[in-house]
Every structure is written in C-alpha cells, then in structure tokens.
C-alpha cells in the first residue's frame, strides 16, 4: 500500500511535469514549423510591402528595438535609485517593506492599464500623439520592478565583510555604493534588464494606444507624432486583418522572430541567474 502510494505520486507528478514541458515545447515547435519557411535574410532586412503580403519586417524590428532601448534608458536610473534607497538609504524595516510591496504590486499591474495610462498622459495631455517616447516611458514604468527587485536581491547577497572592509578603509556610504555594492551587484541590473526587456518586447497592450502604428513609420524624427512600427502590434493586426493567404506565412514568420528575440534575451540572462540559483542552494 505504502509502496504503491510512493510509486503513484512519482508517476502522477512525473506525468504533470512531462505534460507541462511538452505543452510548452510543442508550442514553440508549432511556431518554428509554421514560421520557419518565411524567415530569411530578406525578411529581416526589407520593409513591409503589399500590406504585409510581401517584403519583410525590418522597420518593425527597428521599432521594437527603439522602444526597448528607450524603455531601458529611462528605467535604469529609476530602478537603480529605488533599489539603493531600499537596500542602502532606508534604515528602518517598515518603510523598506512598504517600498518592496509597492514594487511587487506595480509588477502585477496589467499591460493594458499601462497602455491606457500612457494614452491619457502622453498621447493626450502632453499632446505627443502616438510617439516612440510614450511607448518607451510606458514600458519603462512596466519593467521597473523587474530590474529593481533583481538588483535588490543581488545587493542583499553582497557579503557583509566586503562592506565592513570598505567602511574600515574610511569610505563613506556613497563611496561604498560606487566602489563595492554596485560593482558586486551589477549582474542583478543586467539580469533584471534582460528579463524586463524580454517581457516588454512581446507586449502589445501597453503600446497599441501609445506608440505603434501599422505601416509607414521609419526612424522617428522627433517626439511629437513620431510613432514607430513594432513586431507584436504587427502580428496583432495581421492576425485580425490579412487579405492575402501569403500574409499567413509572413505572419508566422514575424511570430517566430519575436519569439526568438524574447528567448534570446532570456537566454543571455541565464548564466547569471543560474549562478544565483547555485549560490542560493549551497
């Protein structure tokens, strides 16, 4: 009886794990199989033609990269500031916990809420219309918690004795931050940024009302009325409106490229995350 329970639990949970992995791997396989034939050098370097039926996704890719880099540029100082305030400058546990809780809550805010927020504030109040900057700011706000929390964890893991040694040398707090804490914990910023960008790259909801249009945008030439194209919005629109059957394979191709971009960002974040895992498990 006890033996069979042992076996049963192992079998059932193994099955669950197998299903979970199979589901997710299968999903990637389907995208790769359908999108694979469409992806080639020309697909990545040409612009859209014939309303998505011909040409490639060059400007969509560029637009997504513009959104990501502006989001990162805005996010980094804010996230680093927040992490330092939480770990270094706040002395009492109460306010620290409040700040952390706030970050976790912000992390749970749905993308569409950010989208509506950006629409009201940047598109309407600031009068920017659809602009790459609106999108960048909205995405920055969205990924702040990921970067900040990741850095906070690394700061926590910096050995006490380093800090004590630095203090022994007569360094003040600010100097310790620059000389010890940030260099030691920089991996947290990198990991958090990569994961945050991976999330931001695939989102449609925050940018659909704030930053991207379907066709015709190239490099932005200012802030006002300077939308960009983007990969996820392209897929979203074509999924609802594609006249030509040849749009189909292009659509899957775009999905494959987006997936590859997101997975690439997650994969280069891996080594430093694995290191953290190993340290945590020692």
């Amino acid at each position: 009886m006890r033996k069979s329970l042992d076996f049963l639990l192992a079998a059932v949970t193994a099955f669950c794990a197998l299903v979970a992995v199979a589901l997710l791997v299968g999903l990637v396989a389907v995208i790769a199989q359908r999108g694979g034939p469409a992806v080639n050098w020309g697909f990545l370097t040409e612009q859209i033609r014939l309303v998505g039926a011909a040409g490639g996704i060059f400007w969509n890719l560029v637009g997504t990269l513009i959104l990501l880099s502006s989001a990162l540029t805005v996010c980094l100082p804010l996230a680093i500031g927040l992490a330092l305030v939480e770990r270094v400058w706040l002395q009492r546990e109460g306010p620290r916990r409040l700040l952390r809780t706030l970050l976790y809550t912000l992390n749970g805010v749905p993308g569409i809420v950010f989208g509506i927020f950006g629409f009201v504030v940047f598109v309407q109040w600031c009068g920017w219309g659809k602009s790459w900057l609106s999108g960048g700011l909205v995405l920055a706000l969205m990924i702040i918690p990921t970067v900040a929390v990741s850095l906070m964890e690394r700061l926590k893991a910096v050995p006490k004795k380093y800090v004590e040694a630095a203090a022994g040398l007569g360094l003040n707090r600010a100097q310790i931050v620059w000389a010890v804490l940030l260099p030691q914990a920089w991996g947290g910023v990198v990991t958090g940024s990569l994961l945050g960008l991976a999330r931001a790259a695939g989102e449609v909801a925050p940018i659909m009302f704030t930053a991207t249009i379907f066709a015709g945008a190239t490099l932005p030439k200012g802030i006002k009325e300077s939308p960009v194209l983007s990969l996820p919005y392209h897929i979203f629109i074509l999924a609802q409106d594609s006249f030509d059957p040849s749009v189909g394979s292009k659509l899957w191709g775009a999905a494959l490229v987006l997936l590859a971009l997101v997975l690439f960002l997650s994969v280069i974040a891996l080594p430093s995350r694995l290191k953290l895992h190993e340290e945590a498990n020692v």
Binding site: R49, L50, K130, M208, F209, I213, F214, A215, G216, A217, T218, P227, I237, D241
Partner: peptide, 17 residues
C-alpha cells in the same frame, strides 16, 4: 502609400485604429 513612398519620397504613415 508604398508606391508614393518610393516614387515621390513621401513620408506616409498609415494605421487602422
């Protein structure tokens, strides 16, 4: 718009929101 972009070097943005 695609044709005019090429032939007239016009800058045209199209969306269907």
């Amino acid at each position: 718009a695609e044709i005019l972009r090429v032939e007239q070097k016009m800058d045209i943005q199209i969306d269907t929101q």
